[in-house]
Computed example of a mutant assay.
Amino acid sequence: MHGLDNKIALVTGGSRGLGRNTALQLARAGADVVLTYRTNKAEGEEVVREIQALGRKAVALPLDVSKVETFDSFRESFTKALRETWQRDSFDFLVNNAGIDIAQPFGQVTTEAFDQLMNVHFRGTFFLTQTLAPLVAEGGRIICTSTGLTRFAIPGYAAYASMKGALEIFVKYLAKELGPRKIRANIVAPGAIETDFTKEALAHPGIEDFLKSQTALGRVGVPDDIGGVVTFLCSEEGRWLNAQRVEASGGMFL
């Protein structure tokens, strides 16, 4: 699938894991990419080089999605990058991917952990989208990352999944309110995926085998299973999908 030539995507948390894969798959489909990293500039620059090797333009910018007070200055640096690299004041695809993983049984969830999850996954995503939405071109796309855990429940993820559930409602309102600008908003909900994000959870004895046994396709997912779904939602072929939750889990807990 191609056809994203001359399009520009912003992928938050694009220096590793699912974000990195999404950035690379968008580039393979013809898009240029601005990706953000939180602390590891070297990782971000490495992904930039990989995208450039595919013949596309790329820029890496620092961003901590939990710090809403920095969003105006991020918008300035992002706008500067758009003008200097592409001679544009707008971009086409906002992929809200950045995230953190904190697993605690409901009875042990701390207010600190709750606030961290809220600030990154919901508050941060909500207000970053608010800050950048005026820059999204007419006909653009906004994609948020959710989780299969909003449909099925695994103990330990009450707080994490609740924030993602809020995002799923948010996307419906984005689609409604940005519809006059022909901007589509959708959410991708991965199942269990092997990344550094999930390494600790999957390392527990028996967990990976259990997840395989509960997945119709008989394996845990890999990043390549997700990046292409995001790319499809950004493509012309995906133009009629709007306000949808697309679960990419290989058929977990059916």
Rank of each mutant, 00 (worst) to 15 (best):
residue 1 M to V: 00
residue 3 G to L: 05
residue 7 K to I: 01
residue 10 L to V: 05
residue 14 G to S: 15
residue 14 G to P: 13
residue 27 A to S: 09
residue 39 T to C: 08
residue 39 T to D: 10
residue 44 G to T: 10
residue 49 R to L: 11
residue 51 I to C: 08
residue 53 A to P: 12
residue 54 L to H: 01
residue 64 D to C: 08
residue 67 K to Q: 15
residue 67 K to P: 12
residue 72 D to F: 12
residue 72 D to S: 15
residue 72 D to Q: 01
residue 78 F to A: 00
residue 79 T to M: 01
residue 81 A to G: 14
residue 84 E to V: 03
residue 84 E to Q: 08
residue 85 T to M: 02
residue 85 T to K: 05
residue 86 W to Q: 01
residue 88 R to F: 12
residue 90 S to F: 13
residue 99 G to P: 09
residue 101 D to E: 12
residue 107 G to R: 11
residue 126 F to A: 11
residue 129 T to F: 06
residue 129 T to Q: 06
residue 136 V to A: 05
residue 138 E to K: 02
residue 141 R to Q: 09
residue 146 S to W: 04
residue 156 G to V: 11
residue 160 Y to A: 07
residue 161 A to H: 13
residue 164 K to Y: 01
residue 165 G to N: 13
residue 169 I to A: 14
residue 174 L to W: 04
residue 176 K to H: 07
residue 177 E to P: 01
residue 182 K to F: 00
residue 182 K to E: 13
residue 183 I to Q: 06
residue 184 R to P: 05
residue 192 A to E: 04
residue 194 E to Q: 05
residue 195 T to Y: 05
residue 202 L to Y: 08
residue 204 H to T: 00
residue 206 G to R: 03
residue 209 D to S: 06
residue 215 T to A: 11
residue 215 T to M: 12
residue 226 I to F: 09
residue 230 V to H: 01
residue 232 F to P: 11
residue 236 E to K: 15
residue 244 Q to Y: 00
residue 248 A to F: 11
residue 253 F to R: 05
residue 254 L to H: 14
